[in-house]
Design a protein around this nucleic acid. Sequence first.
DNA 1: GACGCGTGGTT
DNA 2: TAACCAAGCGT
Length: 303
Amino acid sequence: MSALPGTDRSTAVPSPEPVGETIVDWYAGAARDLPWRAPGTDPWAVLVSEVMLQQTPVARVEPVWREWVRRWPTPASLAAESPAEVIRAWGKLGYPRRALRLREAAIAVTERHDGRVPADVAELEALPGVGTYTARAVSCFGHGRRQPVVDTNVRRVVARLVHGRAEAAPARATDLTDIAALAPDDDARAVRFSVAVMELGALVCVAGAPRCPACPVRDRCAWRLAGSPAHEGPPRRVQKFAGTDRQVRGRLLDVLRGADGPVPADALAPVWDDPVQRARCLDSLLVDGLVEQTADGRFTLPG
DNA sequence: GACGCGTGGTT
DNA sequence: TAACCAAGCGT
């Protein structure tokens, strides 16, 4: 870290390397050792990790991901599994519809792509549960393709580093061009850059109290250079959870996950007092395909 | 574009 | 301790 280009010419104006290169260099020494980043991790395993990581913290994903790639090492193996087993194996990662969609994506890959996870972003986006972020992440991290990858971490880094704002704006189409403009020219380094910016946002340029002293590009950050101004505009509404249908659905599904077979409606009553809300949530789980009703009226995970 | 969708750790 | 936060997606 001693001799940056230009620093050996005492009279020259400093010309620091581009911020993208600096962030890639920082990543080499700061990256977490996450299992899905191991060299040789195949695109299917990367897809599984990316879907699990949608809104769920790394620490909770790690053990479940290991179990999934052990049990279902290929798309075809998951495609052949029952929804009930997949929902059970999802455990308490949250948003269990993701588990169903991942299974549906595995079926689509098996049927439409000869069992191989595509590298093309448009083909990836056509898979259930795969959106703008996940498609590019799989193309880039799973297949090594140069792709701009924008998640909430990247939006926050760009908001501060480039635009001088305290918080990320809602997702926009220009996010992709913003981050692509910072990527190194070399393709292999551009791939590293995509994961490196996410890591910077996850470890240093965090939402709560950013650790600017540890930031490799702190001296070129538009937000710091502007004096770290506070966020302007309405505060983001944090979604409620207590008392919502989401909480009730979670409790209902928790009972069914733990049950050996179909359970009668009476067995579900204790999880929530309000019978109207309880019935509504059970119905929505049926509609989502997360729950099935047997001929005799009991409830179970879908076989 | 706003909203609904789980869960649990951190502050 | 209630609020905040965590690699989004689909409608």
